[in-house]
Design a protein around this nucleic acid. Structure first.
Lengths: 194, 194
DNA sequence: GGGCGCCTTGACCGACCGGTCAATCATCTT
DNA sequence: AAGATGATTGACCGGTCGGTCAAGGCGCCC
């Protein structure tokens, strides 16, 4: 049941999504009330419920949107690169850049994973992300460039390193993206090597 | 201001801590009310506030307690092992075992990191954990066994891999601890190698 | 101008939540 | 037996939150 929206309406919608993401990320999902969001936008409460059926659904949309956006960014960066190891490197670098530009999305996912209602969405998103990485890793194993171990485990490890370094050095310490990406790539490629 | 407690009282306290951890982990912190906790224990609400000043403080105690417990476990496992690389391996294995036995603590920390009020505690705990790992990594670099890179970055990477594999394979897929630990150690040691 | 449909307002509602407290019970000490 | 003190009860309170809705404005087309 999607509403008919004019251009003005679509803008408003995006405005709410962005502001909600910002506030959820800064204060947390539960401590941020719908009243906070609309007050921050200087509009009435009804505006929120004109564009979204509930606070919960808006949050799920944020989760799905972030995942889609990150994934598109990774795919764009990888393009048609034939070397699987290089594809992984490009994926890591693209993720770092995206995390840097979408700091708020980080906390959202981390919170969502801890709440029954949102965990399924996070799990699904993660499975997709891992499946993407697994494809390149399998290719690398076939070429003998990557250790012959469970590709799923290797993929989780790579994602773990990337996200952890992003959180610690990009978000908390605000270090240069390239430098952090270099470190992540160096560690991961060594870790993958056969 | 700590209360005088009899043995019975100390037991009750622990009972509340354990039950709260379980419920927070299963449903999330905010969706779990104090009423839920005491109802699950079949006691009156006053019992909770006899032992804890607030829901918030109980949660902080859970965070600090988990960190202390995990750290002790790591230190016990490492003992006086002289080889720094082996110390890191023992630390990873001890962490895996601890995560396996304290599944509920995982979600708590992850949630706490996303909420303003608890984030400082999480950050402090993380700094201590990283500082521990950094010591061994520095030793390894001096011995030429570990790549000469920022030890802090390497430590974060190792912790990232360990926690991610623990979450994905221990908690979500319930695979054997040793197997997951082996995979984490293999990836991390290769990643650290010079 | 007049009507129609997108958009906005904000008072209001029922539910729930964290926390309090006067009263009572239980157990140990003297 | 009689306090004293630890431990427990659950009704109650003020406040907040997600969500509703009747009413009204705003822009566009006939």
């Amino acid at each position: 049941m999607t509403r008919k929206l004019t251009q003005r309406g679509r803008d408003r919608r995006l405005q709410i999504l962005r502001e909600a993401a910002r506030l959820f990320s800064e204060r947390g999902y539960h401590p941020t009330s719908v009243a906070d969001i609309v007050a921050s936008l200087k509009v009435g409460k009804g505006v929120f419920y004109w564009y979204f059926p509930s606070k919960e659904e808006l949050f799920v949309e944020l989760l799905r949107g972030a995942h889609q956006d990150l994934r598109r960014r990774q795919q764009a960066a990888i393009g048609d690169e034939p070397d699987p190891v290089r594809r992984i490197e490009l994926g890591i670098r693209a993720s770092m850049a995206w995390f840097h530009e979408h700091r708020s999305s980080f906390n959202l996912v981390q919170f969502a994973a801890t709440e029954e209602r949102f965990a399924p969405v996070v799990r699904h998103n993660r499975e997709v992300a891992i499946a993407d990485a697994v494809r390149h890793i399998k290719d690398g194993i076939v070429e003998g460039r990557i250790a012959d171990q469970d590709p799923g485990v290797l993929a989780e490890a790579v994602v773990g390193v990337t996200e952890r370094l992003a959180q610690a050095y990009l978000l908390e310490r605000d270090e240069p993206v390239d430098q952090v990406a270099d470190a992540a790539v160096a560690f991961c490629l060594r870790g993958l090597m056969g």
